[in-house]
Amino acid sequence: MSNPITLTDEATAIEPRPRDGRQTHFAHSRDQASEPTTLAIGVRDLNAWYGDFQALHSISLDIPANRVSALIGPSGCGKSTLLRWFNRMNDTIPTAHARGSVHLGDTDLLSRTTDVVDLRRRIGIVFQRPNPFPKSIFDNVAFGPRLHMKLSRTELQDVVEWALRKAAVWDEVKDRLASPALGLSGGQQQRLCIARAIAVGPEVLLMDEPCSALDPASTLAVEDLIFELRRQYTIVIVTHNMQQAARCSDQTAFFYEGRLIEVGATTTVFTKPKQQQTEDYVSGKFG
């Protein structure tokens, strides 16, 4: 594992995370994994339902800032449900409702008064299947910035280039920014979707099985990217791939049937799990 290149400046002090959504987070990069971390998202006693079916039971979980947190567990255990409550994507499902508290800094994410539109700008999401819009590559990345900011043409071009470089697809698409995004390969599409998500300057990036529709080479590219991005973003990733969780996450949470069974540093969870169920799952006995 090579040493990742420092992307921004030499700042090492950890400043409080921006709360008002107006500042940029570029000054807050973290250099060493050993430094004390701040809390990005705090989940307390979260219960979630689809209609009468309870999908999450009393979840309490801390997502540290500028780390990669992996959510693992067998299919149907509620990983996506939890993730989708972080940025209220579940609002689109009429039967979904939740009780408990989820906080991003001071913002209560479940409150009725929280502006979900602003919330989703601060917490970006990447889905399992790449879902580029049927527009050009440029327009895909420019979609978010156009919604949220007033930018001149050249400024917009800067943002698009920056986001595509960050998502490690710039070199592959720089000569065909105007061609349709659906012409890209699956892996490129997924990285385009990541670029699209970071182009609005989110604080947290949620990824729901971002590699499950990709081939091994693309998976590797996206994993590299996740490793790279954690310097500036808090990342929560859902994955079915144990190696992936082990390779690119700092913290792992194991879920089973809507309950949080175990959470801890990734190395601990994978090598010395406290719970039998966790051990069975990570060693591949079920799931």
Partner: peptide, 27 residues
């Protein structure tokens, strides 16, 4: 590491500029 990020000429420049844009007040 992803080598497309390794070209140093643009980085400080573009990063700073985009940082400024993204930090601007939103609509």
């Amino acid at each position: 590491s992803a080598n497309s990020l390794a070209t140093p000429t643009w980085r400080g420049d573009l990063d700073d500029r985009v940082g400024k844009y993204l930090g601007r007040s939103h609509r």
